[in-house]
Design a protein around this nucleic acid. Sequence first.
DNA 1: ATACAATTTGTAATGATTACAAATCCAGAG
DNA 2: CTCTGGATTTGTAATCATTACAAATTGTAT
Lengths: 150, 150
Amino acid sequence: MITNPEGAREILLTRGIKPTYQRQTILRAVLEKRTHPTIKALYDHLLPAIPTLSKTTLYSTLELFASRGLVSRLSIDSGEARYDGFAAPHHHFLCEACGAIIDLDIACPAARRGQVDGHKIKEIHGYFKGVCKDCQSHVQYKIPRRLSHA
Amino acid sequence: MITNPEGAREILLTRGIKPTYQRQTILRAVLEKRTHPTIKALYDHLLPAIPTLSKTTLYSTLELFASRGLVSRLSIDSGEARYDGFAAPHHHFLCEACGAIIDLDIACPAARRGQVDGHKIKEIHGYFKGVCKDCQSHVQYKIPRRLSHA
DNA sequence: ATACAATTTGTAATGATTACAAATCCAGAG
DNA sequence: CTCTGGATTTGTAATCATTACAAATTGTAT
Ligand SMILES: [Mn+2]
Ligand SMILES: [Mn+2]
Ligand SMILES: [Zn+2]
Ligand SMILES: [Zn+2]
């Protein structure tokens, strides 16, 4: 949701992160892609824009972003991590048929309170798994997909 | 929560699983351990009882149990998977200080309905991360612990 | 005892992530 | 402008959980 070309740079500056070309480009990608991409997907997507990009840079940059609250890392299944540029806490639905990860808007009472049973909450991860609305209307799965560790 | 020595055997039989010695012993361990153990923890715990045990057997057996609803597999962080013998859906709290995984009893409206936004729900994973009640009352962390991928 | 299928086991392969050091970049000093 | 030190980026190797696969073992029916 960056509206102007300078958006990524300004976001980085407000967080005290030096806005290098790599960081701006990576941030733009993770903010624009609403698919909760994996490292591999981001790497393939970014290679044209950053021909020298290394996966190590992706890992370290995304960890930097996550530590500053710019992105969140999802461990929705035991395979590859996924990155979400929509940083506000929200729940996710993983479709076991097409593999899509869909944002959910579910009110979580515990989140508001900031604690459960006296335990202080710093992160909330709500994961639902099943068959998405779109896949239910088809008889066959759209994309035969191997879910990791399935 | 097996009350008699034959409990594990009977549970396996009711699920149509041949109750071998390994399976009974593994099932007993995962039902009795309420710590959401990793494969490695289960392996170390079971080695005295099953000296010939291989990790491959643990992986395949726990996957068999999970597919029959006897246990659930948690992906609460991107490191090792954890196994839960308490199969009824419930939420979890991971303490970033001591590493404990604590069961929570939180009502989830979406779970009752069986769907969200038209997506059919088959699994629910509610993960909270933070500092548990016990660790908050101590100034120092009890066990300096390396959280995976931290 | 024999044969056969299921189960268990050991080893190798896979694949994501991390560790680490060399290469590169870049802002400031002179 | 040139030099320089620290931050950043990159490439390669190591780590580690998990899976693949085939051999060994087990148990049961004939
Ligand atoms: Mn999301
Ligand atoms: Mn539990
Ligand atoms: Zn789908
Ligand atoms: Zn704790």
